[in-house]
């Protein structure tokens, strides 16, 4: 099974592990990620204002590539996923916005949100099935208490993202379980780490990350997993008590031949 894959700029650079382990684990689970040709950076945040066109074109181009290839577009980074999914929603539901974008691109093939966008975790849940991970799992993570850190961008705005129950998500916990470890539920798993304020407002981010880390520690987590390079950076930089891994690293550990 093949999917078109939008890795995003960070996964080609500071977050290589997130990318490499996603691809390798996919092959072990029977699917392949084919990178979008010459993809451009999505910009990291979706500009909600409907008069912003230029900042959304990179996402539209990737979406059009998926439409042309006739396969879903798969993302791994939470931020890319949010930007591309929100852009696709706007192309589908805001006719005036879509018309402006289509007039600008002007390649004779208007786009109206036809492509399907899946986050890697959704591919595992909805197409491959978590049972497949269970089947191939090596047992190396048995007894390990792992907390899922969702942050904000995978879940919200939930009416657009449709990822999981935004207040009580379970998709990452289900993956952790299938990988043979023990998921730990804690209160702050779906609250914001402070995001890009890391640049200008480090004190605000430090406060947020401290609250998240405390909440995870109190619930007994031995490690956290995330899908977002910025969540990971912020948590680690601000002195998380537990290691913070990408969810693909955990998955890879569970599927690896050498334990």
């Amino acid at each position: 099974m093949k999917f078109l894959y939008y890795p995003g700029c960070t996964l080609k650079n500071k977050a290589k592990d997130l990318d490499i382990y996603a691809r390798e684990s996919a092959l072990k689970l029977g699917f392949e990620l084919i990178e979008v040709d010459e993809f451009q950076c999505c910009g990291g945040v979706f500009t909600t204002a409907n008069d912003e066109i230029a900042t959304k074109l990179a996402s539209v181009r990737a979406l059009k590539a998926a439409k042309a290839a006739g396969v879903p577009l798969v993302t791994v980074c939470s931020a890319c996923h949010n930007v591309i999914k929100q852009t696709n929603y706007a192309m589908k539901n805001d006719a005036e916005f879509a018309d402006k974008v289509n007039r600008y691109i002007n390649d004779g093939d208007d786009y109206h949100g036809e492509a399907e966008v899946y986050h890697y975790l959704e591919v595992l849940r909805d197409i491959i099935g978590f049972d497949k991970i269970k089947e191939k799992c090596n047992g190396a993570l048995k007894g390990k208490k792992i907390g899922a850190y969702y942050g904000c961008l995978l879940l919200r705005p939930s009416s657009v993202m449709g990822f999981d129950d935004p207040e009580n998500p379970r998709i990452i916990e289900d993956m952790i379980k299938a990988a043979g470890a023990a998921p730990v539920i804690y209160g702050e798993r779906n609250e914001c780490c402070g995001g890009y304020a890391a640049l200008e407002e480090p004190a605000l981010v430090k406060k947020r990350c401290g609250i998240i880390d405390e909440s995870a520690k109190a619930a007994g987590a031995e490690a956290l997993v995330t899908a977002c390079p910025l969540c990971r950076y912020n948590l680690v930089k601000n002195g998380a008590n537990v290691p913070v891994l990408y969810f693909t690293e955990l998955l890879h550990k569970a599927l690896s031949e050498e334990i």
């Binding site: 950076c41 931020a79 200008e200």
Partner: peptide, 27 residues
């Protein structure tokens, strides 16, 4: 709010590109 010259003082070796492009997009 943010200029390419002004951003340098905020950077360290680990900061993901995502943080920088997001801040520019926002500010």
């Amino acid at each position: 709010r943010l200029t390419p010259d002004g951003v340098e003082k905020y950077l360290d070796d680990e900061i993901p590109q995502q943080a920088i492009v997001s801040a520019f997009r926002k500010y």
